[in-house]
Amino acid sequence: MVVEVRVKLKEQVLDPQGEAIRRVLAGLGYAEIEQVRVGKLMLLEVAGKDATAVRSRVEEACREVLANPVIEEFEVRLP
């Protein structure tokens, strides 16, 4: 199954990249876009049928390497 891992900066962490994107959008007339936060989307092809087991393994991988808990949080989405 294809598992989605979304990694984003924690709320309290400043995202200068998102802010730069917001500014360019504002300059192009998208003034209503008030904030931009940039994260990562990873698509993992995972062997296995047991959704609970797959989720648990992917979450373990997130904690071990895919996200840095100091600055990031992750979300795992199964099909």
Partner: peptide
């Protein structure tokens, strides 16, 4: 701690 992108990008 951890490293973020430089504030100047």
């Amino acid at each position: 701690g951890a490293m973020l992108m430089n504030r100047t990008l």
